[in-house]
Design a protein around this nucleic acid. Sequence first.
DNA 1: ATGAAAGCGCTAACAT
DNA 2: ATGTTAGCGCTTTCAT
Lengths: 348, 348
Amino acid sequence: MRRHFAIISSMPKRSSAATLADIALHAQVHKTTASRALDPERRHMVSPEVVGRVEAAARALNYRVNRAASALRTGRSGTVGVLLPDITNPVFPPILRGIEQALAAEGFFVLVADTGNEQAPDQAADRMLAQRVEGLIIATSSLHDPLVERLVRDQVKVVLVNRRDEDGSLPAVVSDDMLGMKLAVDHLVSIGHRRIAHLSGPLALSTGSLRQAGFRQAMAAHGLEPAGFAECDAYSCDAGEDGTRRLLDSEAEFTAIVAANDLIALGAIQALQAQGRKVPQDVSVVGHNDMPLMDRVSPPLTTVRILHYEMGFRAARLLLDSLRGVPGTTSTVVLRPELVVRGSSAPL
Amino acid sequence: MRRHFAIISSMPKRSSAATLADIALHAQVHKTTASRALDPERRHMVSPEVVGRVEAAARALNYRVNRAASALRTGRSGTVGVLLPDITNPVFPPILRGIEQALAAEGFFVLVADTGNEQAPDQAADRMLAQRVEGLIIATSSLHDPLVERLVRDQVKVVLVNRRDEDGSLPAVVSDDMLGMKLAVDHLVSIGHRRIAHLSGPLALSTGSLRQAGFRQAMAAHGLEPAGFAECDAYSCDAGEDGTRRLLDSEAEFTAIVAANDLIALGAIQALQAQGRKVPQDVSVVGHNDMPLMDRVSPPLTTVRILHYEMGFRAARLLLDSLRGVPGTTSTVVLRPELVVRGSSAPL
DNA sequence: ATGAAAGCGCTAACAT
DNA sequence: ATGTTAGCGCTTTCAT
């Protein structure tokens, strides 16, 4: 096309974007030389004077390398895919931000798929692989995830974030879920609670399963039995309300609830108040995650703070290292959570 | 490479990903035919029987089209860039989700850049253009945005979301900011308030500017003068606290505040309470956006609900139409907000 | 230090 | 309905 126009007349500028050939022409060098001059990694092979000419030409023609072409040639697309279950869940934005900033610093881009309900993560992953992403960061995985297993079989570079696989064989960046629950239980015990119930997340997820195990272990360490238990089928307020109603119906007696997640905790508070039980006077509630705004809900939520941003950032770094063949990138990074005491828990 | 291996020995399967040539070989057709058979748009040119053979081969070899190659050939990358100022601001996740789902439905991918503080949106946009995104959805633009002007000059397809440009010449999907403020003011007036102050957002942004104008206009319609005004330099709790302190220092007398945004409203409540003023008994506060969790903060926030998800969804649709050359895609879509009355506002 | 040639994998245009 | 040819724009050999 452009060539065609060029023959007809000297076009005003470019009918489409400038290419290396244009730069080469303008700077009076071969396009190979132009390519080298514009790449910091290979610039040293070119005389400073030529580098100057090429850069000037690139600026004059508003040149931008065509990543589709270089991706085809080199096999590197400069993109990484991120699979999220639901970006509107407040846990994920800071994770995504950490991922994005770690990758942007190295010139990589993030392709995001919010796999939500309708669209299966499998499809999203396949489309991403067609886009030739160099690796995948997955926040959607369950303990036994067929998708993840398939990806690993296909030798796709994968890092899990916020979730881990059953046998811990995949690189993952997570918070110490067992420790988090211990912090919550220890806090409640220290202010006098003995009858403590647990609202778990989905047990098919590592977070749900590990936090439940952490709860039981922490209780046992104090010589206590769980005073009640209900599994919530999602990390949402609704699921928390529902789980709490089941807990109340079971006629379990408890003075405190440890929830697997802040949203579940908010649902629990809602359900308790609907039954006339005051939080924290009648029942203390502790969440997990310390999502944004948890200091401003009513009552302000006592919770376990997780380093979301850092989780995303380190997951991205782990993937970058793995792409560059740095050894030891199969390791799992476990971040240390901390307790944040607010108004939803009170001495018995 | 692969060719090389193939000569040495019959490799176990593929040393790298299968290509069209592999499929063609396997299905005993020319690769052009294979290409046609795998593309729904061109499948009709191929006999059903051959389509079957090709599809079987593709499945057997786990074939995925190389988008880098097809992007180079067709000039279409199947990606769209999204520029966000801060994904951790709760306004943006639902917008991003709407964008993502509208685009995914058409086989497009989203490249996200969180331009935050450090990295200029300009750089992100340039890198995206190098990636050959087919268009850009921008949520970061100010009223006079040099970046947007440059992009338009370069004929980049751009849609603004949640923000608009000064003269409304660019396609944009926004909420009716003036109407939103009228809803807030009318509500307060209807429950007896007369002395109403405004905490605006940054006036360089269309939302800040239009909401301020909407506030003044709505007040004037009731024959009222603004009882006080402060510009907040960001849409954040901190900026809201700061603005409220300035309002209080100015010794303006008011019984209600209309904030340009929920986070600013939360900051205002914080600052008022710190001065011993109760919300809503002493001062009513109305927010804007109805971010997630605004029904659970203390007191539950009266606010103006914006259709964030739909805003993102329609912005993406607008861009898709524009990419396909549908006429009339320069139009601006204005969505209708609605008032949500909760506990932060009360009769005088 | 620079240039020439080749080809990544795909699809559009042109045969047959 | 299928095949042939060519080339998108880049970077990696391999010369010079």
